[in-house]
Computed example of a mutant assay.
Amino acid sequence: MTEAQALPLPGNADSRRIGTALRVPVPRPVPDEVAPAARREWPAVSVVMPVLNEQKHLAASVGQILGQEYGGELELIIALGPSKDGTDRIARKLAFSDARIKLVSNPTGRTPAGLNAAVLAASHDIIARVDGHGVLLPGYMEKAVRLLEQTGAANVGGLMLAVGETPFEQAVARAYGSKVGLGGGSFHVGGSEGPAESVYLGVFRRDVLERLGGFNDHYHRAQDWELNFRIRQAGELVWFSPDLAVTYRPRSSWPELVRQFFHTGRWRREVIRQYPDTASARYLAPPVVTGAILAGTVAAAVGTVAGVPLLRHGRLAPVMYVLGVLIASFREGRGLPWRAQALLPAVLASMHLSWGAGFLFGRRPGPVADCPRR
């Protein structure tokens, strides 16, 4: 199986069935919201998936996509980054066994570049994003397409349902879904259906993606949030539904978790730099806490060495933070296995301080103008 090349975007004809028998009247259409799924024609959907080092989860993710009980045509375009594990081998085997799978190349390995390459090779007018470690729940595609039609939204999406297997992953998953962990965004902790700032992954109208230039290649992280911001700026609607849940596999080791959140903080700073109006307490809390702990620790050290009693009170900053994390972990960790509960305080602290350090000290990316979107 060779990799599919990026092709010009083909249009799709809108075919309608018309009664032609003279003695048989054309039936009145039944509204989609009450029409049985088997009696309506579902639009075709292209699923785009950028992958890099996804050997562990790729087959399960692809299986759930192609196994959706969806009445319309589905295709899956996988954008292959330069993986160091067996991801490419697995992807080629999957593509060989199912003609609905196309492979395209993503030499940079960056998520937005892979998404844009996959969209360019897609055949249909509805684009659904799924990551290589995400697993769609049954009925996801049908619910998403219905919401696109009923709301007129440019993008619909739902919850990142983090699920861990090991005690460490279970602690990380609980932190992801907690207001103490990731700040309380609806696509992490849930909420009422309706217009939203952003959603997890998303199912898009292709015409809006093309009009806005697709995903911004400049943003190695937070490209989904940045795109949703531009969608809302253009007067379009982003719609959240808690019924659209996608299982997410969290990081499985401390180095992976710290690296993830360091870069998350770094790229969140870049989003705020380009769009200052998007700054909020939720995004600024980690760098403020990290800065306060560093300042308090340095002040306490200087006060001890220099014999200045007032400065020694700086040690209260890290002490109060540790107490706060322990209390939050006790509250948020209820129902977890005891090993995961024991790890939760350190997991929360790693997330907070890594994000804060990335925001404060992460290397600034190059200018946005130097990184074209396509």
Score class of each variant (00 low, 15 high):
163 V>H: 13
148 L>Q: 02
174 R>N: 04
131 D>C: 12
146 R>G: 03
148 L>Y: 04
130 V>W: 00
129 R>K: 15
147 L>Q: 01
149 E>R: 15
147 L>P: 00
114 G>C: 06
166 T>D: 08
161 L>D: 05
117 A>K: 02
154 A>V: 09
172 V>N: 08
111 T>G: 08
144 A>H: 04
139 G>K: 06
175 A>I: 07
130 V>E: 01
177 G>S: 15
147 L>W: 00
169 E>L: 05
150 Q>P: 03
152 G>A: 12
146 R>H: 07
158 G>H: 03
105 S>R: 14
171 A>Y: 00
139 G>A: 14
150 Q>H: 14
124 H>A: 13
163 V>R: 09
114 G>N: 02
113 A>R: 05
109 G>C: 14
123 S>M: 12
159 L>C: 04
120 L>A: 11
107 P>I: 14
113 A>I: 07
115 L>F: 05
142 E>S: 11
169 E>K: 06
175 A>S: 14
141 M>N: 03
126 I>Q: 01
110 R>I: 02
132 G>Q: 10
134 G>V: 15
122 A>P: 00
151 T>L: 10
168 F>A: 08
117 A>N: 07
177 G>L: 08
111 T>I: 12
144 A>V: 08
159 L>N: 00
137 L>T: 15
116 N>A: 15
147 L>Y: 01
175 A>H: 05
132 G>S: 13
136 L>K: 04
118 A>C: 12
135 V>F: 08
164 G>F: 02
127 I>Q: 02
158 G>M: 07
134 G>W: 05
160 M>S: 04
172 V>Y: 07
118 A>Q: 14
126 I>L: 11
173 A>H: 03
159 L>E: 00
112 P>Q: 11
118 A>N: 11
145 V>N: 01
118 A>H: 09
140 Y>W: 09
138 P>H: 12
124 H>M: 13
168 F>Y: 14
136 L>D: 04
172 V>I: 12
161 L>H: 07
164 G>R: 01
173 A>E: 05
165 E>Q: 14
133 H>P: 08
133 H>L: 13
139 G>R: 08
148 L>D: 03
133 H>T: 14
167 P>F: 04
177 G>C: 12
136 L>W: 02
121 A>Q: 13
149 E>F: 09
124 H>N: 12
147 L>F: 02
166 T>C: 09
